[in-house]
Design a protein around this nucleic acid. Structure first.
Lengths: 224, 224
DNA sequence: CGTTCGATGCGTACGTTGTACGCTTGTGGT
DNA sequence: ACCACAAGCGTACAACGTACGCATCGAACG
């Protein structure tokens, strides 16, 4: 009997791949990938460092599994219904997942060892495009374009040195402080007369670009 | 006199920030960021590890400087002439620089400690857009969209598990091997009937998406 | 109930990394 | 000829990933 044994294992604080994975993701969410060390992870789990290696081949294996766990959090686009709303929804879903797990940005597309959730996700995206009327070549184009934009946006947004609109002024000041005034006039202009205005949120740019891209893709699809 | 002293220093194999930087970039180009180690770097320069620290505050400082060196390699878009050709050219230039320095992808937009070349580059991009007729808000939109796409494309392309079109078949086979056949039909279709066709090069996707985005931006600019 | 055996956890140890600290050596200016 | 400062180095340490082999424990079986 497996269930009986597993249940007991669960009841006690038995280690398991799942527990290690969850703790690792939490760790990385909290402090970035740098804070994820096997030793600290073991400490959180109240276990000796080497105990982890019964459930994980090595750190790379762990990280691969973590990435697939993030993919599993992303809503799959449906193949029926409007392709455009499906793509829009999946873009938002990816963005949100990456916002929850900033450490994953830059690793998600790591071609090496794609996990099942990764493959299923991409399969569903292509399926949705094909069902929406894109031929193979255009589905490939759309897929590449959308993915590049989504991950690129996450990347640039992640690296922004400010979080809310309040801190922007301070950060901008500090960033430009070492340089002579008037050295970067256009940067200065866009900062003072756009970015620093109340109500600005860089996150809003995401849907703007997404819609522009989806408009372009619809045009391609219609004339194919 | 500074020049005299500097000249002598140059003539001999004196260490300098420039020399350290160049060697570090070479090292990273060759083997990725993981291969860039203060100790190996010192070895290449025929110097003791700690000697480096006279010219570099620490490894992070070194990496920041390396990133700015990459920015310095990128052609600045001109503010006069067609905005569209300027943007197209700078996109290609960024792509090429990132192809030469794959380790830099994912770090380029690191908001912390932007160097002068970085700021000058972004200032020129915004300047070119403004001169091309974009108002402030639309320049911000265009800037965000283009940057996201360019970096995102570099990111996804970098992580592709294959290099030329020859290896694709093998890699695809290996990647899908652990999973039941027919599990990912759309992925399979696009691989066998598009990606694996002779003449396919993922790099070609870049200009396709770029043109689609530029078309969209032109439409925005015209109706603003 | 006693034995056995595989799964799980752990202690120790090693090689590699970044880098703090203070000494040594060489060099340009006086 | 001297000196002061810059440049390079030797030693040392803490933190990391992880190889290797032993200890332990619970389930299954006789």
């Amino acid at each position: 009997m497996v269930t009986r044994a597993m249940a007991r294992a669960e009841r006690r604080n038995r280690l398991s791949r799942e527990r290690v994975l969850r703790a690792a993701v939490d760790q990385a969410d909290a402090g970035g990938l740098d804070e994820l060390t096997m030793r600290k992870l073991a400490e959180v789990l109240e276990v000796a460092p080497m105990a982890l290696y019964r459930h994980v081949a090595n750190k790379d294996d762990l990280v691969d599994a973590m990435i697939d766990a993030v993919f599993a959090e992303i809503d799959l686009p449906s193949a029926d219904g409007d392709w455009r709303t499906a793509m829009h929804g999946r873009a938002i879903s990816v963005r949100d997942a990456l916002a929850r797990h900033r450490w994953a940005i830059g690793l998600m597309e790591s071609g090496t060892n794609p996990g099942p959730a990764n493959l299923r996700h991409h399969d569903a995206v292509i399926g949705s495009l094909r069902a929406g009327g894109f031929d193979i070549a255009n589905a490939a184009h759309a897929y590449s374009l959308l993915d590049s934009y989504i991950y690129g946006f996450a990347l640039t947004k992640m690296n922004l040195p400010f979080e809310g609109s309040d801190e922007i002024a301070d950060v901008a000041q500090e960033m430009l402080a070492p340089f002579p005034e008037g050295e970067y006039p256009h940067l200065m202009e866009i900062l003072t007369e756009h970015v620093m205005l109340p109500g600005y949120d860089y996150g809003d740019e995401f849907e703007y670009g997404l819609d522009l891209i989806l408009d372009g893709l619809e045009r391609v699809r219609a004339t194919a």
